[in-house]
Deep mutational scan, measured.
Amino acid sequence: MDVFMKGLSKAKEGVVAAAEKTKQGVAEAAGKTKEGVLYVGSKTKEGVVHGVATVAEKTKEQVTNVGGAVVTGVTAVAQKTVEGAGSIAAATGFVKKDQLGKNEEGAPQEGILEDMPVDPDNEAYEMPSEEGYQDYEPEA
């Protein structure tokens, strides 16, 4: 019985440690998101679009440190934060509304985080759909 109880105690310690790591990862992701939003706020009209992409990228980098179902929630929060940063930029006159959601080359930025393969159960990952990809044929 002692062996059984000791095993359960060790398992509990492992769960607590994993929860603490997840909590730490979420806190880091939130900190990076805040950094990115402050970065966007300090940019001029020309830099705002690039700044919004930076927020998304920093958040995406930190999301990889967070495991399990938390990833889905962090990704949703990050996307809403990026959308909010863009709205703030438009409201303050840093950028025109028609410039939001495009990178410096004018290509749409939507789907940055949505296409990231995420499995809350950590069982399997699927690649994003290939609808947006084109076949590449090298020139002879």
Rank of each mutant, 00 (worst) to 15 (best):
E123M: 09
K21I: 10
E123V: 15
G25N: 04
T54G: 09
E104Y: 04
E130V: 15
E131H: 08
A91L: 14
E114W: 09
T33Q: 01
P128A: 09
T72Y: 03
P120Y: 05
K96E: 13
D121T: 10
E139A: 09
E105Y: 09
T64M: 08
K43R: 10
G47C: 08
G7Q: 07
V66M: 12
P108A: 04
V82F: 12
A78W: 14
K96I: 03
G31V: 03
A91P: 03
N122S: 08
K34D: 00
G36R: 13
S42Q: 09
A124P: 08
T92G: 08
D121M: 08
G36E: 03
K21E: 00
T75W: 15
D119I: 10
V74M: 15
V74H: 01
M1P: 00
G41P: 01
P138R: 06
M127I: 08
A29G: 02
G93N: 05
V15H: 01
V40P: 00
Q24H: 07
V55E: 00
V82E: 02
K102Y: 15
V55H: 01
A107I: 03
M127W: 05
V16C: 10
K32V: 09
V95P: 06
F94E: 03
E110R: 08
Q99F: 12
E126Q: 02
N103V: 12
T44C: 11
E131F: 12
T64F: 12
V37F: 09
L113F: 08
G111K: 09
T75Q: 13
K58R: 11
L8T: 00
A11R: 00
E104A: 09
T75R: 05
A140F: 13
T44H: 01
P138A: 12
N122T: 08
G51L: 07
D119N: 05
E104V: 11
D119H: 12
A19T: 02
N122D: 10
K96M: 13
E114H: 07
V40T: 01
K10W: 05
V55Q: 01
E105T: 12
K80T: 04
V40W: 03
K97Q: 15
V37A: 06
V3A: 02
S87W: 15
G67M: 14
A140Y: 08
V77N: 01
A11D: 00
G36V: 14
H50L: 14
A56W: 13
G41S: 12
T54P: 01
V49H: 14
P117C: 11
Q24K: 15
E35D: 09
E110Y: 07
A89W: 14
A17M: 12
H50R: 12
K12L: 13
V82K: 06
I112P: 09
M116Q: 15
K96A: 13
V77I: 12
A19G: 02
E137G: 07
K96L: 11
V55P: 01
V55D: 00
E139K: 09
Q99K: 02
G14D: 02
Y125F: 09
A107K: 11
K102V: 11
G67N: 05
F94C: 15
G36K: 15
N103W: 14
P108E: 12
G31S: 12
A124F: 15
H50Q: 13
K21T: 04
G7K: 08
A140I: 07
E28A: 09
T22K: 00
E139V: 10
K45P: 02
Q134K: 11
G7V: 14
G51V: 14
E139C: 03
A107L: 09
G14M: 15
K80I: 06
S87C: 12
K21S: 08
A19K: 02
E126K: 11
V71R: 07
K80N: 03
Y125Q: 11
V74D: 11
P120S: 08
G25L: 13
A140D: 13
K60T: 06
T92P: 04
K6F: 04
V37W: 15
D98I: 03
V95L: 11
D2T: 03
K32M: 14
A107R: 07
T33E: 00
E57A: 07
D119M: 10
V66Q: 01
M127A: 03
G84I: 13
V82N: 03
K23M: 15
K96S: 11
G47D: 11
E104H: 06
P120D: 06
A56Y: 15
D121V: 05
E126T: 06
V71N: 02
S87F: 06
A140P: 12
T72A: 13
Q99P: 03
E104W: 05
K34M: 03
Q134W: 10
K97P: 11
G47W: 09
N122Q: 08
A76R: 10
T54A: 11
V3D: 01
D135P: 04
E46W: 05
A29C: 11
G101V: 09
M1C: 00
D98F: 14
G86S: 13
G93F: 02
V26Q: 00
Y133P: 09
S87R: 03
V70T: 02
L38K: 06
